[in-house]
Design a protein around this nucleic acid. Structure first.
Length: 571
RNA sequence: GCGCCCGUAGCUCAGUGGAUAGAGUGACGGACUUCGAAUCCGGAGGUCGUAGGUUCGAAUCCUACCGGGCGCACCA
């Protein structure tokens, strides 16, 4: 299985030249309406006029409700205004017809012959179709950032799929993107991990396990594997287990191993991080101290009950909170704020954090801190990823950390595979809790939308293989008049829409739009395929249909590329 | 109690302030002498949680309430 776009990085992406026809048409329609409105005496018409893709098929390729808004300004009925807007329209090559419909909507149908030119555009550009020119803006996406205290779990997979896909979408839109993982390899976590390690080492030395198990210490069996690794590497391992001074070092050993294990699992999932940002390094460089001094200098701290508080309530948070505990330790927000400051200092235009579902209060707090520090907090976007429940046989799979319950990302990938896992995670928007149906994800039938799309790709590959022997007899030029039926037109439209879909998915940070687009285009293709022949037609029709399915394959491959799902040539 | 997110077809979910709210799935009926049936074609299914408000127009924005998820530490 190949992920053709996995290795693609922003620097290597070549942009498409010239504006895509779909968006060119949308701009032209908007400009035409604006010009019309101006001649009708409307001031600043661009503020009133919107051109959108209608939800319903019978309403054209684009629609505008400008007449309704303008009726306020002009004091005429929407229907009258719509007719005036459309009258005297300079008929260009791109628009086939327009109509005033209902109480005042204006609907536009693009010229099919003109739009069909986009097919050849897609076929020749292939893996640069839909990709924008570099725009000189940089995006940082931080995601997963799981604690290095155990293997990745299922919800980390959801974050991984979303973050990586968002990154790919931004890249397609011409941004330079960095993927970053923040490693919480410091503080209390390391102590607890070190304690768990000491217990496991003593277990290897023949001591009984403590009873009861100490509060907060990781009980997971994976620590035993790490203890065995440590034993193999360290002659004095048995003494280290008893040395309280070494607890943190033991924890660091584990954290390092677990971090690398997480990295491997993520690579297997098709997700590569450009930077693993260490909290420990941040602390060792004195960043938390500098952060507190900076806040102090800005006069936003005060002392109470032996602790140091931040006046977050002045910056939009619900209440003030502690930054330095009475025992002198920093609370976790201090290194986190230092980390975010570092992100700003690195000069990113957009900074995105994908956070776990236990971070609802965090968002406002971090925003308050950035504001207090005089940083442009609006550039920092924090998106909460909601929980994932696993279903098997229609029932919720319990995900307790004990025993052999199904909890890790690795197990999920083993069971359903990378492609269905990524697809299912991306199918739903991030801010709503999701159910992951294990049975459905494994079905290799029409029930499973992943295979539905992949099957479309495989069918096209199959036809193209069969076409190789016939190609010599066909004309080189495409005759757009050969496209006569609705499903062909729908597919031409789908191909032409890809750049706009990618743009919108980026603007809305919504990979699920890509998933829905793919399901739609696959549906159109399967319908077309069952209804019409390709190879048995006369040369001109055959040639046109070959161009069509090649273009469809291009957009399927491109769209699957940005969600990180493969398009196998055979299934 | 406070905050964030969510209530849309039996189920899982889309939906950019616009027209008659859409897919998939489930159940039922049909379609391979064919380039791949992992496919296609049918009809059925709705007080968009409730009540107000803003608007020419609300599933979408505002307010209140009802129901659900998750947060609200000198934890991370």
């Amino acid at each position: 299985m190949t992920h053709s776009s996995t290795s693609r990085h922003a620097g290597e992406v070549k942009a498409m030249a010239g504006e895509p026809r779909w968006e060119a048409a949308q701009s032209a329609i908007r400009e035409g309406l604006v010009t019309s409105a101006r001649t009708m005496g409307v001031e600043n018409p661009q503020t009133w006029i919107e051109v959108m893709e209608p939800t319903e098929e019978g309403h054209g390729d684009f629609t505008s409700s400008a007449a309704f808004r303008l009726s306020k300004v002009l004091g005429q009925s929407p229907a009258v205004i719509a007719r005036r807007l459309v009258g005297g329209w300079p008929a260009g090559p791109m628009i086939e017809r327009m109509e005033v419909a209902g109480p005042g909507f204006i609907n536009f149908w693009l010229d099919r012959h003109w739009l069909a030119g986009e097919l050849t555009e897609a076929v020749t550009r292939a893996d640069t179709y839909g990709i924008r020119a570099a725009r000189g803006e940089r995006v940082l996406i931080e995601f997963v950032s799981a604690n290095p205290t155990g293997p990745l779990v299922v919800v980390n997979g959801r974050a991984a799929a979303l973050g990586d896909s968002l990154a790919r979408i931004f890249q397609a839109n011409g941004y330079a993107v960095d993927r970053e993982f923040y490693v919480n390899d410091a503080g209390q976590q390391l102590q607890k991990l070190g304690q768990a390690m000491a217990i496991r080492l003593r277990e290897l030395a023949g001591d009984p396990l403590p009873d009861p198990w100490p509060e907060g210490v990781y009980p997971g069996e994976y620590v035993r594997d790490l203890a065995e690794a440590y034993r193999a590497l360290t002659p004095d391992w048995a003494e280290h287990a008893l040395d309280a001074e070494r607890t943190e070092a033991l924890g660091a050993f584990c954290a390092d191993r677990l971090r690398r294990q997480q990295e491997q699992e993520l690579e297997r999932f098709g997700v590569h991080f450009d930077r693993w940002f260490s909290e420990r390094a941040l602390r060792e460089a004195g960043a938390p101290e500098r952060m507190v001094a900076e806040l102090e200098g800005r006069g936003v701290l005060y002392r109470e009950d032996g602790a140091v508080w931040f006046r977050s309530a002045q910056f939009g948070d619900q209440k003030d909170y502690v930054v330095v505990k009475s025992n002198g330790e920093f609370t976790y927000v201090v290194p986190d704020a230092a980390y975010h400051t570092d992100k700003f200092e690195r000069g990113y235009d957009i900074i995105i954090d994908l956070l776990g579902p236990d971070h609802h209060g965090y968002k406002r707090r971090m925003q308050a801190m950035m504001t207090a520090l005089g940083l442009p907090a609006e550039r920092l976007e924090m998106q909460i990823i909601q929980l994932v429940r696993l279903l098997r046989g229609g029932k919720v799979v319990r995900m307790s950390k004990r025993g052999g319950d199904f909890v890790t990302l690795a197990e999920l990938i083993d069971e359903v595979g990378v492609d269905p896992a990524r697809w299912f995670f991306l199918e739903r928007s991030a801010d709503t809790p999701m159910d992951f149906d294990l049975d459905l994800a494994q079905m290799k039938t029409q029930d499973n939308p992943v295979y539905y799309v992949q099957y479309a790709g495989a069918r096209i590959h199959s036809v193209l293989r069969a076409y190789q022997g016939l190609a010599a007899n066909d004309p080189e030029a495409i005759d757009p008049a050969a496209f006569r039926n609705p499903l062909e037109h729908a597919l031409i439209r789908d191909v032409a829409r890809l750049p706009a879909v990618l743009r919108r998915a980026g603007e809305q940070r919504a990979p699920q739009l890509i998933v829905h687009y793919l399901a739609e285009i696959a549906g159109h293709f399967h319908g077309f395929y069952r209804q019409h022949r390709i190879l048995e037609e006369a040369p001109a029709v055959r040639r046109a249909r070959i161009e069509l399915i090649r273009a469809v394959l291009v957009v399927i491959t491109q769209a699957m590329g940005v969600i990180g799902v493969s398009v196998p040539e055979r299934m």
